[in-house]
């Protein structure tokens, strides 16, 4: 996906640059942008390390696992076809918690494990099960408490108060996830006949 997207972005940029007579600026942009990416990462190191450090305390003190347990009833409601004590419940819960806490890199492996188990429950069919659809829709609607990256970028580009958008972001993310859940539940009901 990114191979095309990235390639096309650069090709279009160069072609338009030639036509606009701004090829000198394009040339400068390649140099200054790569430098800027490194500067950005250096200032991101602080915020990111602070956050992963805090999350390690949360993990070690059992906060993360108690959150995961707290999700059980919600998962039962969202995924009625999953057997009660199946391991996939754990994977889905861990994936959701990691997403909520902004630990995206920890969420993906858990999400993929969940999909592998759902595949077994789906008897290796090439038609997605309701549980898979629900899991993906909720994943994509992204419930995130603190978008650490965005805060770091805002701070790097001189925001007076990088965190001021947090509550607004939470309201928006809860709304989009709510719509995603509503859609999943309705879609499952409407196609109840076929499994």
């Amino acid at each position: 996906m990114l191979n095309y997207l990235w390639g096309i972005m650069i090709v279009i940029g160069i072609v338009v640059g030639v036509f606009n007579g701004r090829i000198d600026e394009v040339s400068n942009a390649t140099l200054s942008s790569s430098k800027e990416a490194v500067t950005l990462c250096i200032s991101m190191l602080g915020i990111m390390a602070m956050w992963t450090g805090l999350m390690e305390i949360a993990k070690k003190s059992g906060i993360v696992s108690s959150f995961t347990k707290g999700l059980r009833p919600i998962i039962k409601f969202l995924f009625p076809d999953i057997p009660k004590n199946h391991i996939v419940n754990e994977y889905i819960a861990s994936n959701m918690i990691a997403n909520i806490l902004g630990l995206g890199w920890a969420a993906t492996p858990m999400g993929l494990m969940a999909m592998k188990e759902l595949k077994k429950l789906n008897k290796d069919s090439d038609l997605a099960s309701h549980d898979m659809c629900t899991f993906l829709i909720i994943n994509i609607s992204s419930l995130q408490l603190i978008p650490v990256n965005i805060i770091a970028y805002r701070s790097q580009y001189g925001s007076a108060n990088p965190a001021e958008i947090l509550a607004a972001g939470i309201v928006a993310t809860i709304f989009s996830t709510f719509v995603g859940v509503l859609f999943s539940v309705l879609a499952r009901k409407l196609s109840k006949g076929d499994k």
Partner: peptide, 16 residues
Amino acid sequence: LIGLMVAVGVLRASGA
């Protein structure tokens, strides 16, 4: 980030 900031930088500078 380096790859994508370069791509976006090129798009921005070109006027695209």
